[in-house]
Write a protein that binds this DNA or RNA. Structure first.
Length: 311
DNA sequence: TCGTGTCAAGATCTT
DNA sequence: AAGATCTTGACACGA
């Protein structure tokens, strides 16, 4: 069975769990004022998250990416003495309860400034701190290892081989609670499906296949040839893939507003006999998901539930 | 209320 | 060596 999901922002719920503030704002306040401000932002993020998850469940959407901004300045020095874990323990429990009760798969995507294969020790340190934060949120919500952190390989630094090796070396040093959630995605400019697959097989981490990125860089490889191996990297977890449509011929790498039905059908043909979660990445978010769903229904393609068996 | 400059973070390309 | 770009929505402030 296939499940569809979307990233971070819902167009239907006006408020989203990605409210934030700025360093400049916090600097104007005394320590107590800072904590108050951070608390206020996080409170609205919790409120908005519960609202959004309820909407998701009502609409049969069980795959969702939590915005990295969920905890404001979670790893920034300016919020170092703010103990959000303790302060929001009750809320994290409640959210986790709802997520587990409704079998929602939460995922996350640490920002593109977090780069595990960096050769700069201070960047590595802040990257691990960022991964730790993302993992901790899922840990505190009591979510299983299907709640993953998706990252890219990182920079090339003029030497792909050693850059891949450095990813593997740094991966090996990660604490268990991060390692059990970290997965690697092929990107659209540097590391191809094949390169990431080899890396994932080597280090024993799952691979997120991004179809659009593969369309951006490849050496003519067909995804169907590699799907069994990609899916095998997930072990007993549910594989996750990313799907999006190019914005235009000229601006190919950018995401379009919606998903192009025919391209999606061609992809579906290759994966529909697997159990796969598909994250749709497009500007129109949940609206695009619901649109695709209705187009699939019109095309009489049953995707998200097992085929009906008539008695 | 509306328009706009600005925003934590790195890598890479351009000047 | 310093600056621009990537990508990008939303905060915060001034009009």
């Amino acid at each position: 069975m296939i499940r569809l999901g979307y990233a971070c922002i819902s167009m239907a719920t006006k408020n989203n769990p990605n409210k934030k503030t700025t360093v400049g704002q916090l600097e104007k306040l005394d320590p107590a004022g800072r904590q108050k401000k951070l608390r206020k932002v996080m409170q609205s993020n919790f409120f908005n998250l519960m609202d959004l998850l309820k909407y998701n469940v009502e609409n049969g959407i069980f795959l969702y990416r939590l915005p990295s901004e969920f905890v404001p300045f979670a790893t920034h020095p300016i919020a170092a003495d703010w103990d959000w874990e303790k302060e929001f323990k009750w809320d994290l429990d409640k959210a986790g309860e709802f997520i587990r009760a409704n079998a929602i798969r939460m995922t996350s995507h640490p920002g593109h400034y977090s780069i595990l294969n960096t050769n700069n020790p201070s960047v590595l340190e802040s990257t691990i701190k960022d991964f730790d934060y993302h993992a901790k949120v899922f840990d505190l919500m009591g979510l299983d290892a299907n709640s993953i952190l998706v990252t890219h390989v990182g920079g090339v630094y003029q030497d792909k081989e050693s850059s891949l090796q450095r990813f593997a070396d740094h991966y090996a040093t990660l604490p268990e609670h991060i390692k059990k959630r970290l997965v690697v995605e092929n990107d659209d400019v540097s590391f191809t499906m094949i390169e990431v697959l080899h890396l994932c097989e080597k280090i024993g981490a799952p691979m997120v296949l991004d179809i659009h990125h593969h369309d951006c860089i490849n050496n003519g490889e067909q995804i169907e040839e590699y799907l069994p191996r990609i899916i095998a990297t997930w072990g007993d977890r549910t594989p996750k893939m990313h799907f999006s449509s190019p914005k235009s011929e000229k601006d190919f790498r950018a995401h379009a507003d919606t998903i192009e039905l025919n391209a999606f059908l061609r992809f579906l043909d290759k994966v529909s006999h697997h159990n796969v979660d598909i994250m749709l990445e497009c500007k129109n978010k949940d609206e695009a998901l619901l649109k695709l769903r209705s187009e699939l229904r019109q095309a009489k393609v049953e995707v998200e539930s097992p085929p009906l068996v008539l008695a």
